[in-house]
Amino acid sequence: MHDVHMRWSDMDAYRHVNNTAYLTYLEQARVAMFFDRFVSFADGTVIAKHEITYLRPVIYHPEPLRIEAWVDTIRGASFVVHYEVLDEGVVAARASTQCVTVDFAHDRPRRLTDEEREVLRGFADEPASAR
């Protein structure tokens, strides 16, 4: 779980949080989840794909949004992070991000290490709304 604060500038002309702001919210949750805590992910992970399903509009308010995040589909050089964006306890969006580990020195994907796999398995879970 991670809380993210909306910015007034995240709203668009329709007076709700713009769809592009969600990518920033997801990034904040993902970085807090493991990139801030496990240097190997921060030193060599890129984003291959995002998918977001918007379920209801979010109107700016000072309370943070809650991001529930979990990992699955751990493969040789990639994994998927899933999210639920909760606005005052109600799911406003569901999303996923495919992350690929990369060897930047050789500019190609690299296999996940055993340690990285163990870290990712620690985040294998399901959303709170499914429990």
Rank of each mutant, 00 (worst) to 15 (best):
M1K: 15
D3A: 10
D3H: 08
V4N: 02
H5A: 13
H5Y: 14
R7C: 00
W8T: 14
S9G: 01
D10P: 09
D10C: 03
D12W: 09
R15I: 09
H16Q: 01
H16N: 01
V17H: 00
N18A: 06
T20L: 05
A21H: 06
Y22M: 01
Y22N: 01
T24A: 14
E27T: 12
A29K: 02
R30S: 10
V31H: 05
V31K: 02
A32C: 04
M33V: 02
M33Y: 06
M33E: 01
F34R: 12
F34D: 13
D36R: 05
R37K: 10
F38Y: 15
V39Q: 11
A42M: 10
D43E: 15
K49H: 13
E51G: 04
I52Q: 07
I52Y: 09
T53W: 11
R56I: 00
R56S: 02
P57T: 00
V58D: 00
I59C: 08
I59L: 07
I59T: 13
Y60F: 05
Y60R: 03
P64W: 01
L65G: 02
R66Q: 10
W70Y: 08
V71K: 03
D72Q: 09
D72M: 07
T73Q: 15
I74V: 07
R75S: 11
R75Y: 02
S78H: 02
V80Y: 11
V81K: 08
E84K: 09
D87Y: 04
D87W: 00
D87V: 00
E88S: 11
E88G: 06
G89V: 13
A93E: 03
A95H: 08
S96H: 13
S96Q: 15
S96E: 15
S96A: 14
T97W: 10
C99F: 09
V100Q: 08
T101A: 12
D103C: 02
D103V: 04
F104R: 09
A105E: 14
H106K: 13
H106A: 14
R110T: 06
R110P: 01
R110F: 04
R111I: 05
R111W: 04
L112Q: 01
T113L: 04
T113N: 05
D114P: 12
R117H: 06
G122K: 03
D125L: 07
D125T: 09
E126Q: 14
A128C: 11
A130P: 04
R131F: 04
R131Y: 05
R131W: 10
R131K: 12
R131S: 03
